[in-house]
Design a protein around this nucleic acid. Structure first.
Length: 254
DNA sequence: AGTACCACCTGACGGC
DNA sequence: TGCCGTCAGGTGGTAC
C-alpha cells in the first residue's frame, strides 16, 4: 500500500501519538521485519522528531540515533491501549501504558536504526523527494533517459516516493502514455508531468488526511480493464509496464 | 542503461 | 467445503 502520501500520513500519526513518550520496552514479535541493529537500545529514550523522505519514515530518538521504517507492501502503524492489532510485528511500549505497533501482514517492511536520514538516503541512493523537487531538476533527471517514463517514475533512485499507483495517476493527469520513452517527452509534457506528480501527491495527502476517498476524477476508482475514463469517455486499458500492472486511458494518454 | 524474472511473504477472491 | 490459481499500491538480486 504505502507510497509517499500514505507514509506522510504515517509520519503525522507517529508524531501525534509517539513523540515525547518514554519508551519502556520494544517487543520484536517477528524478527523478519527487523534490520541489523538492535531496537532494544531505544529503551529509556523518547522520540522527539519525525521526518519523511519518499516512502521512508525517520524518527529521532534521544540518543541521537534514528528509527527508520520502510513499510513494504502492507506496513502500517497502530497506536492502541488494550489489544494489539492483528499482524503486529513490533511493539513499542510507552511509560503511560499505551503502545505503538508496527503492523505488516506480508512482512516486506523493515524497521531499523540509522545514524541519520541523510546517511540512509546516501547509502541507499534515494533520489529527491518529489515534494521538495523543482522543475529544472526534474527535467535533468529524466531528459536523457531512454527507459519507459512510468518505470523511471517508480525508480526510487531517480525520484523517491512514487510507486505503481501514483505513477499511473500522475501520467493519467498529465495525459502521457506510461509506455513512452522518457526522452521522447516534449517540454510541455515534462512540465505537465511535473505538476501532475506534485498535484496528485499533495491532493492525496489532503483528502486522505480528511478521511475521504479518492475523488472520481482520479484514475484509482477506475482501475479496471474496460472502465470508462471519467475525463474523456475513453476506455481504460490494463497492461504491464516496468513489471507492474498498469492502467491508463488509451484515448487521452498519448 | 534498461528489462525480465525470481525471491521474499500472507491473505482475499473467483472458479470448479 | 476445499483446493487451486491469480492478484496485491515494494524492493533487491541476477542474468541478459
Amino acid at each position: 500500500m504505502p507510497e509517499l502520501p500514505e507514509v506522510e500520513l504515517y509520519a503525522r500519526y507517529f508524531a501525534r501519538h509517539a513523540l515525547g513518550q518514554t519508551i519502556v520496552g520494544v517487543r520484536l514479535l517477528d524478527a523478519r521485519v527487523a534490520g541489523t541493529r538492535k531496537l532494544g537500545s531505544l529503551r529509556g529514550s523518547q522520540f522527539h522528531r519525525v521526518s519523511r523522505h519518499g516512502k521512508h519514515l525517520f524518527a529521532q530518538s534521544g540518543g541521537g540515533i534514528w528509527l527508520h521504517i520502510h513499510f513494504g507492501m502492507t506496513g502500517d502503524l497502530e497506536y492502541y491501549r488494550d489489544d494489539p492489532p492483528r499482524f503486529a510485528r513490533i511493539i513499542f511500549d510507552f511509560a503511560d501504558g499505551a503502545h505503538l505497533a508496527y503492523v505488516d501482514m506480508r512482512l516486506f517492511g523493515v524497521v531499523d536504526l540509522t545514524p541519520s536520514p541523510e546517511s540512509y538516503i546516501r547509502e541507499h541512493r534515494l533520489g529527491p523527494d518529489p515534494l521538495q523537487l523543482r522543475l529544472p531538476e526534474f527535467r535533468r533527471l529524466i531528459e536523457r533517459r531512454r527507459g519507459r517514463i512510468k518505470a523511471l517514475l517508480m525508480s526510487q533512485d531517480v525520484i523517491a516516493g512514487v510507486g505503481n499507483l501514483y505513477a499511473d495517476e500522475a501520467l493519467y493527469r498529465a495525459s502521457v502514455d506510461p509506455r513512452r520513452a522518457a526522452n521522447s517527452l516534449g517540454d510541455d509534457d515534462v512540465k505537465r508531468l511535473f505538476a501532475a506528480i506534485r498535484g496528485v501527491l499533495r491532493e492525496a495527502i489532503e483528502f486522505k488526511s480528511r478521511g475521504r476517498d479518492y475523488p472520481v476524477r482520479f484514475l484509482v476508482p477506475h482501475r479496471l480493464e474496460g472502465e470508462r475514463c471519467p475525463r474523456c469517455g475513453g476506455t481504460v486499458r490494463r497492461t504491464i509496464v516496468g513489471g507492474r500492472t498498469t492502467y491508463f486511458c488509451r484515448t487521452h494518454q498519448r
